[in-house]
Design a protein around this nucleic acid. Structure first.
Lengths: 251, 251
DNA sequence: CGGGGGGTTGATCTCCTTCAATCAACGTGG
DNA sequence: CCACGTTGATTGAAGGAGATCAACCCCCCG
């Protein structure tokens, strides 16, 4: 298993005050002086689309926040079967304080910039700085909810419902970021290949392709190119997910 | 949706020092004075096997630790499809600080005793007492790992592998509690009905039954009664899970 | 004795996988 | 500029793993 090397480690740098994820990442609750401490132990790393950030079992001596781009967490069985267990978007946290090595394969799906903290100092700082631990707890609880929502999708939904659910989740997230209202026609980019979707949904890429074609035929979605998707009627999409209409989003 | 009432709320009570889960629950890191504070806001509730602790969406004005017995977290779709998303064992934590209502159905699988904390005071105490938040973070990270392990099982494993995985997980946990070595013949009780296993594994109860019979035929497991299981060769069981032999347990 | 909950087993059906061919877009080198 | 390989995606045909429908068993309890 070859280790990949970031293309331009350290070339990217930024003041925390101007950071695009300042208010959503682990550092969200930090005061000014706490940020100053973080600045000392942080460094940036960039990865190209397709590069592996870490293999499962690799030693990882940092934890990190995704600044821009998308990464995936996945598990692989010996015979090659693969399951994605997390989709990391800007502000999401990578790594586990107190753990030596990565428990999952971490792969950059798009070009990716991460704000890394050396693990040891970060752990020490967590003990001194409750704001970090508090925020991390909150984020971890959110991820746990997301993982559990995903368990329902994986365990009980049909292929069509799985695809509809994935599209709805991405659309919803995209809408909140882009500040579009999630109702009415909205357009966005699928950040995943068919294969990645299959890995996420526990399907084959052929089934993914077929179900997307089916949703297109039924006018639930409109494809504008392979990746660009338009949802003419969001409620119609939700109906296809099998969830009850009031969103499925936890409050 | 009928609310169920605990049979003898408050009848059970205990000093924290003698508590069987003292060193594994949210309170594990608490000092003596912190425990004293917790004592003031805690109360015990008991539930009979089969009783529902809370329905998804119910207002929950407490969080709790499982003291004894087993409970399940599950999600239900409108048409009745159900997926278990968590198995709660002694010392596990129930509820989410900062959330008004339960996100899942919580059901007592066996007779159950929970140590409940009124939510509001608990939240306030979390802000003052880093030990609680630290421990809760640790536990939540563990649960997230467990949920992700389960995603692989749900998304990519065959029915036989799913059953083997479930049995292996329960066996392993049981062995660590009972201090038996997990190698060599070990015997334990399945705490779940076939239906509950099906809900956990994303299968039907018929498939569960068939696969258990198949594992029995192949001498991977030995049934001593319907629920009592003996594993003559633990490694042979592991082979059936599809995981690589070195455990699959994260360190 | 009847009834119900939990469990097993059989027959059939169906949805998804598997295997395979084809296509479009893109880059590369001759 | 065109042949060629590659990567991502679509579509078809065949097969199989698990769901569904149904019968039946066992055991406990009222």
């Amino acid at each position: 298993m070859a280790r990949t090397i970031p293309i331009e480690a350290g070339s990217y740098t930024q003041d925390c005050d101007d950071c695009p994820i300042r208010h959503r990442a682990v550092c969200a609750r930090c005061e000014h002086d706490e940020l100053a401490q973080l600045e000392k132990i942080k460094y940036y790393r960039s990865f190209e689309a397709g590069q592996t950030v870490a293999w499962s079992g690799d030693r990882m001596d940092f934890v990190a926040s995704v600044v821009s781009g998308i990464a995936t967490l996945s598990q692989t069985m010996e015979d090659g079967r693969r399951q994605m267990v997390g989709l990391l978007l800007p502000s999401d946290f990578v790594g586990r304080p107190g753990r030596e090595s990565s428990a999952y394969d971490v792969v950059a799906t798009s070009d990716l910039v991460m704000c890394c903290f050396r693990k040891k100092p970060f752990e020490e700082m967590m003990l001194r700085t409750p704001h970090i631990g508090q925020r991390l707890l909150e984020m971890t609880l959110d991820e746990l909810d997301a993982a559990r929502e995903w368990m329902l999708i994986l365990g009980r939904k049909t292929a069509r419902e799985k695809i509809a659910s994935l599209i709805a989740i991405i659309a919803r997230r995209d809408a909140t970021l882009a500040l579009q209202p999630p109702t009415g026609g909205l357009t966005f980019e699928l950040p995943l290949t068919r294969e990645a979707m299959a890995d996420y949904l526990g399907l084959t890429l052929e089934t993914v392709s077929r179900q997307i074609s089916a949703l297109k035929r039924d006018n639930i979605i409109v494809l504008e190119g392979k990746r660009q998707i338009r949802i003419p009627d969001f409620d119609a999409l939700i109906e296809q997910t099998g969830d009850d209409s009031d969103g499925g989003l936890l409050v």
